[in-house]
Amino acid sequence: MDVLSDAIAAMRTGRPHSRRQERYAPWGMRFPDSDGAGFHVVLQGSAWLVPAEGEPVAMGPGDVAFLAQGGGYTLAGGLDVPAQEVRPLPDGSWPQLPPSERESGPATVLLCGAYHLDRGRAHPLLSELPEVVHLPSRIGAHRSLRAAVELLGMELEEPQPGSDTIVTSLLDTLLLYILRAWWQTERHGSGHPTGWAAALADPAVGAALRAIHGAPAHPWTVGELGAHGGLSRAAFARRFSALVGEPPLTYLTWWRMITAGRLLREDSAPLRRIAQRAGYTSEFAFAKAFKREYGVAPGQYRKRAS
Rank of each mutant, 00 (worst) to 15 (best):
R30M: 10
E293H: 15
D172I: 08
L135M: 03
D2N: 15
T253A: 15
T168M: 04
I139Q: 10
A285L: 14
E128M: 06
A275Y: 01
D202M: 08
M11G: 06
R265W: 03
L209A: 10
L225P: 07
S163E: 00
I258Q: 13
L170W: 02
E101P: 04
S104A: 15
Q21G: 07
G36V: 00
L79M: 13
M1A: 14
R265G: 11
K291M: 08
F284Q: 11
R265T: 09
P248Y: 06
R87I: 08
A65Y: 00
R143G: 03
D35A: 13
A227W: 06
F284H: 10
S93T: 04
I166H: 08
H116Q: 14
R19E: 08
Y115S: 07
Y251C: 07
L271M: 07
A234E: 14
R121C: 14
S169E: 13
E85Q: 12
W182R: 05
D164W: 03
P130A: 00
L249S: 10
A297S: 13
G162N: 06
A65T: 14
P82W: 04
G36E: 00
H134L: 07
I8N: 08
A278F: 08
Q276D: 08
G299E: 13
F240P: 14
H213V: 12
K291R: 15
G295F: 04
P248M: 03
G92R: 00
P159K: 04
Y73P: 06
T173S: 14
E246Y: 09
I178S: 06
G191V: 11
L117Y: 11
S46P: 01
Q84Y: 00
W48K: 04
G62E: 00
L176E: 15
T221E: 13
A278T: 06
V132T: 07
Y251P: 01
A114Y: 03
L252Y: 02
D6R: 15
I166Q: 11
Y251A: 12
M59W: 07
G230R: 05
G230K: 10
G223T: 03
R15L: 12
W94N: 04
A289G: 06
A7D: 04
L4G: 11
P193G: 06
G295Q: 05
E55W: 01
R20W: 00
A197I: 04
L271A: 03
P32K: 00
P216V: 10
R146E: 12
L110K: 01
W48H: 13
R233D: 14
L145P: 11
G214T: 08
L4E: 13
V132K: 02
A278E: 01
A25M: 06
V41A: 05
L231E: 09
L75S: 06
L264A: 11
G195P: 13
T185C: 02
L43I: 07
P56K: 02
G191K: 02
Y73K: 02
E246A: 13
Y73I: 05
H17D: 09
A83Y: 01
P88I: 03
P216H: 09
L243Q: 10
L263K: 04
P247Q: 10
Y280I: 01
D91Q: 09
A181W: 05
G226A: 07
P270E: 00
G162H: 08
I139E: 12
P82D: 01
I139D: 10
L75D: 09
R292A: 15
L125A: 08
R238G: 06
V149F: 01
G14F: 05
Y24I: 10
W220K: 02
S169T: 14
A275Q: 00
H116G: 15
A278I: 07
